[in-house]
Nucleic acid binder design. Structure first.
Lengths: 340, 340
DNA sequence: ACTGGCACTCTATCCGTGGGAGTGCCAGCA
DNA sequence: TGCTGGCACTCCCACGGATAGAGTGCCAGT
């Protein structure tokens, strides 16, 4: 059975009211607050159908209705009117971003901005290494047998790693290593790097091969394989808005999830569709986040996507507003990166 | 009036029991659980005195007693028997630290280790720049008018900053800048750097002075003045242990405080006394943390201190255990740094 | 297909009560 | 002087019952 327009309208009203008041909403209150043009009895019938279809439920008999995850899903997919950002919000975004000095700065400001605008927990992923290209590699001698390898990417990330060399290394050799490594890798996408790194070792003169192999293994292991994603997080305090009620009693599982980078990446990640993505409750497939939703989006200069960002909040969240904000911020960050 | 030994013993018993059970402790329960050698009536008299002196209080008439901040303070200062780490804990520390590759790694592992061992929120400050010395400065051209300035310190920190140059800069000039900057600053403590940086500009040939001034201002501003402290945080989920009761109702203020780097630095900082430091409730002078205590310690290679670390939890915490753990971890991290 | 009316259900809230834990005080004892 | 047993008192809290109110489902009528 398909739902006619009025039933959808009733669902929308329920979602909107419930998000606003956190109270289960009853038929009478509904007809009072919205111009549905029908009586409460009619609405009740509609509600019964919506409940049967699994879009709403009653916490208990003789209570009002509450949207289910499926209800929110339907709401997001079919009932969301795009809500343009307020001028104040636009200004906030621009004000937040004046005078950024480097990538770290961009990421930190962005995550705070997101948290503040959406009043949720915000997560921003640094530009993914696998989607970046090498701009420059630097080797800095730390001691006779130790080098600091510093990699700078075209997305502005700077990663460093200590390399323990097999034996002492004269300055000229460091120099030569540095030259060869840059020659081979500068300008290359990191995703394409592994075979090139292997080449480097193979092409190396035998007397230097040991050193190069050592360097190569560090390069591969830490910069490519472990693929080093970094994250920034802000706004955890927002979880406590409106008591702890939104998260069925405890924040514990949510806080635990937020501590795991892997989990956060999974939430924010999956950047395939360049559009904003909403995961509601169970959809994000993490037990601890049954009562949480995530709104995320990829960002990057121009049309390419180099990283993800998003916010996490209770399933009972203002989807239209949050979606608009996340999208706007993602676009803005992309523009900012494009300028560099 | 001074407190005799038995009264102190009663206070200790109250603190220990209350920490364990989170229940206000009464005179009867006390004499049952501890060998005080006197009757409950006597204990009651002692309690009345302790209350008058402000070390304990009753949530309400006819409830047991609960330690006040002053009570915890006295307990920590005079009644704490040093509790040696269990072998299991020692092993956990060592196991956690095998195979560290660089400073980031050390800091992240340390903060997680601390959170896990103490079951509190852990904070670790990166080695403070102002207490570090420059090991090397690198200039990497990003575009014709942009340089990436990378600084490596003797404590292993790597900081980078984008420098916008006044005009296009040929490779040789970059090279020359790099040489001069390193000549002047390598090996110098950052605290001593500002006048040296100024020298650098003054000594410069006029045709290069513009570039050097530009570089110098970035150096001063971002690396010295803003003094760039970095932090790692872990274990926020531990705040929810034992309900929210330990924090008088809401976690909100605590979470808010944890989001402010400045506040955290104040909590962990003040490294003057090289020993472990305990701040109880109000003592940490931050409104939001009225019901929280902080146990912190400086760390560094050998006897010098380069940064701070610590944990934050409810005032109702296991002080002896926490102090022992924080101290042990701080020492261990110091040793680790000394090896590099 | 919608509406008004009605009986029903379930929860949240209030209130009064009693049990229990813990106290303070006092008189007696070493 | 310091400790103890005893006792009356206070106050919290858990329990139970009663009530009001919100909301529903259903049905007959338009």
């Amino acid at each position: 059975m398909s739902l006619d327009d009025r039933k959808l309208e009733v669902l929308r009203a329920i979602v909107e009211d419930y998000v606003e008041t956190r109270e289960p909403v009853g038929s009478k209150a509904l007809v009072e607050r919205h111009q549905l043009g029908v009586s409460s009895a009619t609405v009740r019938n509609d509600m019964a159908v919506l409940e049967e279809e699994g879009y709403i439920r009653q916490p208990h008999t003789s209570a009002g209705r509450v949207p289910t995850d499926a209800g929110y899903r339907l709401f997001v997919d079919r009932l969301t009117r795009i809500k343009p950002l307020s001028p104040a919000e636009r200004r906030a975004i621009e004000r937040f971003m004046i005078g950024v000095v480097d990538l770290d700065d961009v990421v930190h400001r962005t995550v705070r901005l997101l948290a503040q605008l959406t009043r949720q927990v915000a997560v921003v992923q640094y530009p993914s290494l696998s989607r970046s290209a090498v701009r420059h590699l630097e080797l800095v001698p730390i001691s006779t047998t130790r080098l600091m390898l510093v990699m700078i990417t075209d997305t502005g990330r700077v990663e460093q790693r200590l390399v323990e060399m097999p034996g002492p290394l004269p300055a000229d050799d460091v120099w030569e290593l540095r030259r060869r490594v840059n020659e081979k890798l500068a300008g290359q996408r990191l995703a394409d790097a592994p075979p090139l790194v292997q080449n480097l070792v193979d092409e190396c003169a035998p007397e230097r091969r040991g050193d190069m192999a050592c360097l190569a293994s560090v390069l591969l292991e830490t910069l490519v394989e472990r693929s080093e994603e970094r994250l920034a997080l802000a706004g955890t305090a927002n979880l406590t808005r409106g008591g702890v009620l939104d998260f069925q009693g405890t924040l514990r599982p949510v806080l635990e999830a937020l501590e795991e980078e892997v989990i956060l990446l999974k939430l924010i990640g999956d950047l395939e569709p360049s559009t904003t993505r909403v995961r509601i409750g169970d959809e994000n497939e993490i037990d601890n986040l049954r009562s949480a939703s995530v709104v995320s989006s990829g960002y990057g200069p121009g049309a390419t996507i180099v990283g993800g960002l998003g916010v996490l909040g209770p399933t009972r969240m203002d989807y239209p507003g949050t979606i608009a904000t996340v999208r706007a911020v993602a676009r803005y960050v992309g523009d900012l990166l494009a300028q560099n």
